[in-house]
Simulated assay, not measured.
Amino acid sequence: MYPPAQSVVLVVVDGLGAISLRSHAGHARALTGSMTKKDVAHSVFPSTTAAALTSIVTGVWPGEHGLVGYQVLDAPRDILVNQLSGWENEGIDPLTWQAAPTIFERAHANSHQSFAVGAAAYAHSGFTQATLRGAKFVPATTPRSHVETAYEIAQSHPGSLVYCYLPQVDKAGHKHGVASGEWVAALEDIDAALAARIPPGVGVLVTSDHGMIDVSSNRQVVLEEPHLEGIRHLGGEPRMLHAYLEPEADADVVTTRMRADLDGMADVISREEAVQSGVFGPVVTEASASRIGDLLVIARGAWALYDGTAADQRARGMVGQHGALTPEERNVPLVRLGAFAR
């Protein structure tokens, strides 16, 4: 149980794994100063922003809210849809594609105001409409301005819920890796922002959607046409691929071949196996199931798998990656500050 608070600020630091945070504790003293071994939560599967952020702000698993990966199949139209940036281009309705009520809508129903502090560029995106509906969007720029704005809103609106999203660590990690100076600098900026004085009566929870693992170039495997025979679409992302088969493909043949090709690098399981195992949560709706690949290719260790036939190869060469099941990707901090401090 958390101590009582007049208002609550939920800070989500995108891409900040608990293991990476602890290994860089000297660069994040404000955040880790009172962090104990118990101050850890677990991300969902796949451990990717679209799925995990949506679970944070709805309180349900991906199998229920329907954002089951970075890029998934819209089966009626037979196209892949990017769950972060493809809403407008692909004509996806945020209100029906993600139908689970948000925590902000539930707060409003109980007469509590909600606010979301983020970059102005996100204010009107489809993903924002899918995940932050019910909250008033407030733009900010730097990590410090995000946090200070969130605290000011919480103080001036008693009983409110304020969501504060910080993407800088994730961006630095993808481009440079968790072991980089750029990543450490982004962490230091966020930690400095979180060192700001918290107003009395404001409870703060700091968490993340997922962690990250560095993948060296010699472990970035490109799948060419012979590897992909029988596969119509390859969605997901390099550490967790959704493979959607051609209607005439023999699933057993494709599965056997992929398991042999990727032995030691990835686990290949069927949609049915994934659903039955509960990896997408205890409830998987019909809509969600239609977006899950016929086969899931889940990277082991520090491997990443790329579609060599795709027109867009911008993801090739990313250092920090996520989406799979390693502790580095799934263990995230859950730190209490302000009125919630132990």
Rank of each mutant, 00 (worst) to 15 (best):
P3M: 02
P4R: 07
A5L: 06
L10F: 07
S23C: 03
A25D: 02
A28Y: 07
K38Y: 11
K38Q: 13
H42M: 15
L53G: 00
S55K: 09
W61R: 09
P62T: 07
H65A: 08
L67F: 10
G69H: 03
G69R: 03
Y70Q: 08
Y70M: 01
D78H: 14
L80W: 03
E88K: 14
P94Y: 00
T102G: 01
F104W: 13
A107D: 10
H112K: 14
A116P: 01
A120M: 03
A123Y: 01
F127R: 08
Q129W: 00
Q129Y: 08
A130C: 04
A130R: 00
F137Q: 10
T142K: 08
I153C: 08
L161F: 15
C164D: 11
P167N: 03
D170L: 06
H174F: 03
S180D: 08
D189R: 14
D189N: 10
D191F: 06
D191Q: 00
G203M: 05
V204I: 11
S217M: 12
V222N: 10
E229V: 13
I231E: 06
H233L: 04
P247M: 00
E248Y: 05
A251H: 02
R259Q: 14
L262A: 04
S270C: 03
V275M: 13
Q276L: 12
S277F: 09
F280M: 09
V283Q: 15
T285Q: 08
A289G: 02
G301A: 12
A302T: 13
L305E: 06
Y306H: 13
G317D: 10
Q321Y: 01
V332E: 02
V335D: 01
A339Y: 03
